[in-house]
Design a protein around this nucleic acid. Structure first.
Lengths: 249, 249
DNA sequence: CGCAGCCTTGAACTCCGTCAACTTCCGTGG
DNA sequence: CCACGGAAGTTGACGGAGTTCAAGGCTGCG
């Protein structure tokens, strides 16, 4: 099921970019005129694989994806989660060969934007070039925050930090209400993201629920006590470089 | 001790950029004409601190620096090492506020390049803009590789991986010979980079020396058995995106 | 209503951390 | 040239956060 058309649900991409940068009206217009290939994927499908040399980058319109790497013996490390509005393989604009995989964690709609169009767009609108560059830099800032988690934080702190981060990122694109958001991941996925075992993730989550820091039912996560969770995590949202107006709505 | 002049030792920056991208003669020329502020630092000095909003980025000419973050209780996580030729805070071009520190691990000479000059340079030479963007993307690829290490690798694998990575990166700028390079770090620094304790790093290094995988004397690291170290680490240099010619010399 | 994937629980184990002492190394100054 | 001091490397004993293994329970979907 593939079609070529203009960006639908454009508000999500605009919202994402406007949460991290300023856009002019001309830039908004140009983004909306982008021709894209729309594709739908089931949960558990690899959109891009390590070793691929994609000619297009994929904008997530709905659903949820992760980026992950596999070791030869099957160990898996998830290195990033991406809510709608993100472009998880934007880097392929300048790093031609993928060194990791992008996989869906839920039914997902993606808009593939050919690199040639992105290059033309950024030539005509230097502001957008800086916005995209900035997005890849924030990506890297998130990696650094995860490194601190995996390297120097306890299991409780790591999980609390991930839940805080995802709350902020969902909120910045308008997908969270009352500290509640939909994140379709299993406890095993959390374990592979945070360098833990699924058994231990389970036990820590029970602690967090018992202490009434969070509520987790199906895919819906609700932060019940933001202050306590933030303190536990040592969470400081500065690294996300989200502009304040994006969070007030 | 501060002076304004053109880039000295320019071959190191050029070498770095040419190890990851193609440059035209005009671009080489423009890089050599860049006006910079030269500064020297002792070991253990912070060049940039979290919260700073620098107006210039620093190119490392000689010495060795790391990027690190501190938790409120003193725990430290080193998130990157940078040999000469690197620009550790290149990201401040588009992320104005630093979310981590850049500190020297040895006496270091840095060339500060004002952002306004970098912006002018990249306007006149789009090839250089792509080269710099590409450098920040490779930076992020290294973060991902570290995430896999910290999340899913044993202490032996982590240390082996770091030694392989640094060997490649020193070699790519001409600072390694016969799998031997100078890296001025303590075992405690390695521990803070890999999420281990200094005691455990010490024991693992003893294993690696006993098995004759490496030799480490003062600051000089020599890889004695590259194949074995690479296998132990699960090291695949693809993520560094170094162009093959850069490694043959 | 049955199955498959996920969650949950318990018990045993281990890798790695912590603590504390000791040694080696090297730069400095007498 | 040697004595000194501090930082880094080394060692052993002990403890704990988190893993592994294995079994059982839940739940949502076909």
């Amino acid at each position: 099921m593939e079609q070529i058309e203009k960006l639908p649900e454009r508000h999500r991409l605009l919202r994402k970019l406007e949460s991290i940068t300023d856009l002019t009206e001309a830039e908004r217009q140009a983004l909306m005129e982008l021709p894209v290939h729309l594709r739908e994927f089931e949960a558990g499908h690899d959109i891009v694989r390590a070793g691929d040399r994609p000619q297009a980058s994929c904008l997530i319109l709905s659903g949820f994806v992760c980026r992950y790497m596999l070791l030869s013996d099957g160990r898996r490390q998830i290195v990033a989660f991406h809510p709608p509005g993100d472009i998880p393989d934007l880097q392929t604009l300048h790093l031609k060969t993928m060194d990791h995989n992008v996989g869906t964690m839920a039914p997902t709609t993606a808009a593939f934007i050919p690199h040639e169009h992105l290059h033309r767009l950024t030539q005509q609108h230097p502001g957008l070039l800086h916005a995209f560059w900035r997005e890849t830099l924030i990506d890297a800032a998130v990696f650094r925050a995860w490194l601190v988690s995996l390297g120097r934080k306890t299991a409780h702190e790591r999980i609390a930090h991930l839940l805080c981060e995802m709350a902020m990122r969902f909120a910045s694109v308008g997908l969270a209400e009352d500290h509640s958001y939909q994140m379709p991941v299993t406890q095993g996925d959390i374990a592979d993201a945070l360098g833990l075992s699924n058994v231990h993730v389970n036990r820590v989550l029970q602690d967090l629920r018992r202490d009434e820091l969070i509520h987790w039912r199906r895919n819906t996560i609700t932060v019940l006590n933001w202050k306590a969770l933030e303190d536990l995590a040592g969470f400081d949202p500065g690294y996300l470089h989200i502009r304040p107006p994006a969070l007030k709505q």
